[in-house]
């Protein structure tokens, strides 16, 4: 055990240093690479220019398109969020200052949505990522027809959301749904999945888990394939079994990717609206009669698209951003403190 730890210490720690604590300022020192010896001075100048300019050249296409088509419209919504503006009268904007935001702070629906977002986020994201990791691990074995297996795992992501929701709505229907029918055999009374508080959140989460597990598994699988096999070899030589290898080689090496999926899934959970919207059927944007599964994303959709309060809806959108920033900052402070006091 101990020896295997030691053997693995090196890659694990180097993996640890890589992700997020200083995003972007990665360790690569090649930017200062020595120019090749014995070349003509124009070549070395060209080389130095290449060194300096290439990062900007590489990110330029991304930022040009991204800035124009993603950033600018988003900034527009920030502008909307500071105004009273209806979807039906975009030119008729009156300055609201932070009015839309203070309105939210005093809105019971907003806090309720925030709470639902959190609880649905947890019960959908945690099992989903764990299952994805496990699934990726299984897919990483040498399999007969490996491509077919991968393809199959991604079908939920490709299946039309409307078709999938129809299936789940039937499964979870109160009267005559298959799940209540099964529960009946265990002696459980039929659950009104859509209207019960925890039941609806569970049902929505199950759709999310079903839809996104294979997706995340594939992301993990790609990262697993880049893990050098000699790490496993040395672990094996040190007597680590499959399970220990998974814990001490695979997981540490996947850290940047795990961080990625956690961030992306958190963001996805915050913005979640498609699944609960369709699960709710007609006027699904309410998220149940007591808003029991109305997420922030759904509340925003309801305000902006159904009711047409574009200003308030934009404020919800940007408050999601602020919430995630707060979460990120708190997370950073906590992890910094944890690292200081080992």
């Amino acid at each position: 055990m101990t020896s295997s730890h030691e053997a693995l210490a090196h890659p694990a720690s180097s993996a640890e240093a890589a992700p997020g604590n200083q995003p972007g300022a990665a360790r690569g020192a090649h930017g200062r690479g020595t120019p090749p010896k014995g070349t003509a001075s124009w070549r070395s100048r060209l080389y130095r220019w290449d060194m300096k300019a290439s990062p900007y050249v590489l990110i330029a296409p991304f930022f040009v398109v991204f800035g124009a088509f993603s950033l600018v419209p988003l900034l527009y919504t920030a502008w909307y969020s500071l105004h009273h503006v209806q979807l039906s009268a975009l030119d008729h904007q009156t300055w609201a200052g932070l009015g839309n935001y203070t309105n939210l702070l005093s809105s019971e629906f907003f806090w309720n949505a925030l709470q639902n977002t959190f609880s649905i986020g947890v019960i959908s994201t945690v099992p989903q990522l764990l299952a994805a990791l496990w699934l990726a691990h299984l897919l990483n074995y040498r399999l007969r027809g490996s491509t077919a297996w991968r393809v199959v795992m991604l079908t939920p992501y490709a299946t039309s959301v409307a078709a999938a929701t129809l299936v789940f709505t039937l499964l979870y229907s109160w009267d005559g749904g298959m799940i209540n029918w099964l529960l009946h055999f265990v002696g459980v009374d039929p659950v009104n999945w859509r209207e019960s508080d925890w039941g609806s959140q569970f049902a929505v989460s199950s759709i999310v888990i079903w839809r996104w597990t294979g997706y995340n598994a594939l992301i993990y699988l790609a990262a697993m394939q880049a893990i050098p096999s000699d790490l496993y070899e040395s672990a094996a030589l040190d007597g680590a079994g499959r399970r220990q290898q998974f814990r001490h080689v695979t997981v540490p090496m996947l850290r940047p990717t795990i961080l990625f999926t956690v961030i992306v899934s958190t963001i996805g959970a915050t913005q979640l609206f498609g699944e609960p919207l369709l699960f709710g059927g007609v006027s699904g944007s309410k998220g149940g009669s007591e808003h029991q599964y109305q997420t922030l994303g759904l509340y925003m959709y309801d305000q902006g698209w159904i009711i047409g309060n574009l200003g308030k809806a934009s404020a919800i959108a940007w408050s999601m951003f602020l919430i995630l920033v707060i979460v990120a900052v708190v997370n950073m402070l906590l992890s910094r403190r944890l690292r200081k006091s080992p």
């Binding site: 419209p73 988003l74 919504t77 915050t270 609206f273 925003m300 698209w305 959108a317 940007w318 999601m320």
Partner: peptide, 10 residues
């Protein structure tokens, strides 16, 4: 982190 659904209007 900012949901894109509203940005479709601008």
């Amino acid at each position: 982190m900012i949901p894109p659904q509203l940005a479709v209007v601008p």
